[in-house]
């Protein structure tokens, strides 16, 4: 008898619990235009009545630009791509003659450009338009003048790491899983997944490679500055 009563209690408690959680799971910021329940004949008779607005958005940004950070991030890739482009150009001149460094920086430029294009496609898949908005720092990026090999590598390492850190921030913004709708307005599991898998994974490798190069060059110089020009020559050979 006792066990039956206990089972009953457990049953009631579970039922209450599940009802509670059902209530609290809300769709955060539902999109304005739902088009699933429009009557099939609505658009047949009079075209003026046809109010179907189809959108790929799964969350609305409520006009406050919840996806703006991702868009700015995309534009930073395009900007960095051209920054690397000119950085690479310097190492292909006769006086610098470092084809290995040129190849490395040119590769960074190409991958930033291609990723930028991919991210434009990614944001439009989600029903948002790409805009050419930039954050303050990105807006002032200039092509750089004469820099040494180590400065170029250290600069690249810094850029790639700042992009990785930023990706981490944007991921957090879109993956703030909360059952409270008001706190999870930017929640987008698909975009978080994209950021983690398609951006951060690759970027982590790049940052590691570049910081490794920077540390190696630094040690080569520190151990024997007189041999450094030769060290650079050999280092460049191995980058080719």
């Amino acid at each position: 008898m006792k066990s039956i009563i206990i089972l009953c209690f457990i049953g009631i408690a579970t039922a209450t619990l599940s009802t509670d959680s059902d209530k609290s799971i809300e769709t955060p910021c539902p999109p304005k235009n739902q088009f699933g329940e429009i009557a099939a004949d609505q658009c047949c008779g009079n075209i003026e009545d046809c109010e179907i607005v189809a959108t790929s958005r799964i969350v609305d940004d409520n006009g406050i630009g919840k996806y703006d950070e991702f868009i700015k991030y995309t534009n930073e890739y395009l900007t960095r791509s051209y920054e690397y482009f000119f950085l690479a150009a310097q190492f292909g001149t006769y006086a610098k003659e470092r084809p290995g460094f040129e190849k490395l920086l040119s590769g960074l430029s190409d991958s930033a450009w291609n990723k930028g294009i991919e991210m434009i496609k990614e944001i439009t898949k989600r029903g948002f338009s790409h805009k050419f908005i930039l954050n303050k720092e990105t807006a002032t990026i200039m092509s750089s003048a004469n820099v040494t090999e180590l400065v170029a590598i250290a600069k690249a390492a810094e850029i790639e790491k700042s992009l990785l850190v930023r990706a981490n921030d944007i991921h957090r913004h879109h993956s703030h899983a909360s059952l409270d709708a008001s706190h999870s307005c930017g929640y987008d599991a698909g975009l978080s997944h994209y950021i983690a898998e398609e951006i951060m994974e690759e970027k982590t490798e790049t940052v590691r490679t570049l910081t490794g190069h920077a540390n190696q060059l630094k040690r080569l110089f520190a151990q024997d500055p007189k041999l450094y020009p030769l060290s650079l020559f050999m280092f460049d050979k191995h980058l080719q």
């Binding site: 807006a139 990026i141 092509s143 750089s144």
Partner: peptide, 11 residues
């Protein structure tokens, strides 16, 4: 090309 404001070009 040593002094291009790339940011403003993208903007």
């Amino acid at each position: 090309i040593s002094n291009i404001n790339i940011g403003s070009l993208v903007k």
